[in-house]
Amino acid sequence: MKTSNQPIKENGVITKKDLKTMFWRSLPMEFSWHYERQMHMGFCTMVSQGLKKIYKDDEEGLKEALQRNLEFFNITAHVSPFVGGITLAMEEMNAQQDDFDTSSINAVKAALMGPLSGIGDSLLLGTLRILAVGIGASLSATGNILGPILFLLIFNVPAFALRYLCAMKGYKLGANYLEKIQSSGLMEKFMFAAGILGTMVIGGMTNELVSVTTLLQIGSGESATLIQGVLDGILPGMLSLVVMGIYYYLMNKKVNVMWLLIGTAILGIVCAQFGILG
């Protein structure tokens, strides 16, 4: 049984405590985001304490490492400590080996950004966040204060657990093992699974949270038939599906989101004026 103050690797310096430090320092990852290098300051802040330890007796090494880790970085913030851990593992190797190719550190970082963001965005921002909104908003809509509380819990309990796991596992897995995952196709499978889950939830949400009702009727007076009733008999929520399909189509046609918003507002007003929707 190792204590948290013993190095994880036999000839290394990084301890479990250092990884916990990295976890805490990863929290403001997005705080200074900007267009040019995006999360670079956040990333450097996250790994800086680890770097200080690795290059304790090598001032020049520390300077180089800090500059190296101020390069472009962007990722789903919650999985960032995973890359931080791998970076520390590689920096540690660099400090020990004279012939280590330092450019590989940023190459590995760059290679990880895409796939990890793909998983992170669809899992956390696409699926978990939407799930949290769905449950939170349906409670909040009735003025229930549990709405926002559940919203935060549903998102943050898994999100923080994942972040902690990433901080602990990244270093241990190291760069080599990740290559194995990628070549074995497991990464692709995982992204596919996240895609299935995410799209199914979006489908359910489209029916549950979009509300479009038509007031149009066939005939008049007592014998009038409401078209909405007919539509519900065929497929409940049909209009929601149609509306979502139209947006999807228009966005694929690269119609600006601003125009879609303005168009929606105008459409709403026109439909209210003529009693088409209600």
């Binding site: 696409g126 979006i202 509300s211 929601s240 979502m244 929606t264 459409l267």
Partner: peptide, 28 residues
């Protein structure tokens, strides 16, 4: 009242955006 209608429709736009982000032919 027109904007109330628009508010009911607008989440569909959010879902369309998300779908565009994570949906492909295989999961459609």
């Amino acid at each position: 009242s027109g904007l109330t209608i628009a508010c009911g429709i607008l989440p569909a736009m959010g879902f369309a955006m998300l779908a565009r982000m994570i949906m492909n032919k295989k999961v459609a």
